[in-house]
Amino acid sequence: MFEARLVQGALLKKILEAIKDLLTEASWDCAQGGIQLQAMDNSHVSLVSLTLRSDGFDKYRCDRNLTMGMNLASMTKIMKCCGNDEIITMKAQDEPDTVTFMFESKNGDKISEYEMKLMNLDQDHLGIPETDYACVIKMPSGEFARICRDLSQFGESMVIACSKNGIKFSTSGDIGTGNVKLAQTSSVDKEEEAVIIEMQEPVTLTFACKYLNNFAKATPLSPVVSLSLSPDVPLVVEYKIEDIGYVRYYLAPKIED
């Protein structure tokens, strides 16, 4: 038997919004320690890795490890039936064919239940090597979303260049060029408003704007995003999810032909 109750049901709604445009379907792997999801987009350019720890749920029970293959468009339909202030409980039997989503209003006088058919997904899991990144940037997630949105008007690719002086995002296309430079913050009142750069060596890499814009759909999950870069390896874009876990996006760079 599997049961996971989340009083802050809006978090699960936001998580789904953060992955549903990138992934058509995905396996939710449930174990005693929590729920994990790892999936590539259809083009195999990016990878989503989601971890929700069991201790972040208000109630969590998982007697046997189980994998629930879900169509994310179907799950989105169900999540639209859940109010932002409602409590979500996910339930499934051992070796399940279906998963049940139960939504409770805060005062308990309305309970909705939706049962969704599961899919058999033969998804490969990829091993993500431990990496000491050359540059790790922490910045306000809203600022990152804004930069991705602004620069993607000009070209399909964005160059991210990080040095000790700061970080520069740039693009070029038919109508011209654009760039945004962010300096490391010297002093801030609020930590989540800071731009913090931890740099071992400078890095310049090129990425597809389309994917970065997709990752930015996780912005409502966290005020801060971290970008980890090293030469010739995928970029990691991480959003922490309150006290429960994180969503990480890995994006393969554009490389010299």
Partner: peptide, 14 residues
């Protein structure tokens, strides 16, 4: 010219 790399070039199947 740059071409888009695949994520599977970097991360191997488990």
């Amino acid at each position: 010219l740059r071409k888009q790399a695949s994520i599977t070039c970097f991360f191997r199947k488990k």
